[in-house]
Design a binder for these strands. Structure first.
Lengths: 242, 242
DNA sequence: ACAAAAGTGTTAGGCCTACACCCATGA
DNA sequence: TCATGGGTGTAGGCCTAACACTTTTGT
């Protein structure tokens, strides 16, 4: 049969397909968002459903993916146009039958992006931001992957200064607090929160204080990475208790 | 060619081989140990080198692995004869070229076993316990996987009562302390350590107190799982600060 | 009886929480 | 000038770290 010719990769033992999927989080100032893509209406699996962006490990061609993280980064850039963003592997999803077509092992990553910077991907697929905690009915086992990502993000925030990845370069203390409250689903005392953050000594005050809207304009801050590294060294580690 | 017949699995796109590897930790009362296996002297890759036990995802046959964790459990049982032990995925290793023969994606797990319970595997391979922090020159990128596992174990101990997995059913407070010191590479004050552990209320005292060796015989304890679950619920979560 | 190992209690300081007041700005 | 939102300071309680004494047992 001529159609057999397309199966040109041969192995002695069965091999699964391997993908990197990305849970891309953003924050619009109100709630945590996740970027999803709509699957093709003619797909053999979950046609028309919303799904986490992801793609197969590229093994041949001019630029094979060096590892699963690079694969995820490539996917992320295709969807958002962004490079050099925070991204991290957090789990492997490999249950038999999770993809009806063939056995697929998925390495899940979560990424934190400044939502304002996202222009729109090079990919033709329809992509859209959804409230991260409200989506359901995603394709495959992506509901579970998303839940796990949210849970991992909540943990990570205690050990890495990841909040700033979701905010604009310059932000205010109330903004930061609202973000933390959105991620952790709790409310903080305004004064204690500021005290705790300031005690970390990882923010720089930004001089300009635009006088425009609101009763009183809050200070502007910027995350100071050098200072963070210095403090991390000094206290050997980073920890933020809530 | 007749030899082509052995490559009987065909795919439209290239697929990597996928394995689960296990970092199996044990504790002999003195130091943290890791179980390694010696590779075949005739292997095409790293012949005769010591390596982490691991195996390919089983996809065909009567009992395919349901997922990577089951694959790791199967491997673990083959090496140690043990079922129902603590095991957890902690990372994916996928760098191009990490296996010289073909592209291999490895899902790494770490397991905690009571070293006294390990009889010896059903596998014919030579297996041996090594001091976990001293081994090097392992096959593939297993040096790095082991380092990462040690680091993950250190983190995990703050959020899960994993120490007991490495000790005999019945143990003493000094034993527990020495284990924690071995894992975290620090020294604790005896009194504060006992106080902190007791405050968790997850141990049961065991009546028998054998009078044999040593100046004074310490109390015997047992990890009380029901009590742990109760306390975890009550305090929503488990945390052990050091 | 003495040395070694293990159980127990007390105190001081630091960190977190709760809470109140003052200030700046736009309406 | 008033309401709204934001910056700052202080007191109390809890938790943790530092530390000393007593008890048991084998020699």
């Amino acid at each position: 049969m001529a159609s057999e010719k397309k199966y040109k990769y041969h192995y002695e033992y069965p091999h699964p397909a391997v993908t990197s999927d990305c849970v891309i989080f953003g924050y619009d100032g109100k709630e945590l968002k996740v970027l999803l893509i709509k699957r093709d209406d003619n797909s053999d699996a979950y046609p028309g459903a919303w799904a986490l962006p992801g793609g197969f490990l590229r093994m041949d061609g001019d630029e094979p993916d060096f590892n699963m993280l690079e694969c995820a980064r490539r996917e992320l850039e295709e969807e958002t146009g962004l490079k050099d963003v925070y991204i991290r592997e957090f789990g492997v999803y490999s249950d038999l039958g999770r993809d009806p077509r063939e056995r697929v092992i998925t390495v899940a990553h979560f990424a934190l992006v400044k939502i304002q910077d996202v222009k729109g991907g090079s990919d033709a697929q329809e992509a859209k931001w959804f409230p991260a905690r409200e989506v359901s009915q995603l394709a495959f086992d992506h509901d579970r992957i998303l839940r796990d990502a949210l849970s991992r993000l909540r943990e990570t925030i205690h050990f890495e200064p990841v909040g700033f990845e979701l905010l604009p370069e310059v932000f205010t203390m109330p903004q930061l607090q609202e973000l933390y409250e959105a991620i952790l689903e709790v409310k903080f005392d305004r004064r204690n929160f500021a005290k705790k953050i300031n005690a970390l000594e990882i923010l720089s005050e930004v001089g300009d204080r635009p006088a425009n809207a609101g009763p009183r304009t809050p200070f502007h801050y910027r995350f100071n990475k050098e200072q963070y590294e210095k403090m991390k060294m000094k206290r050997n580690g980073f920890r933020l208790e809530f």
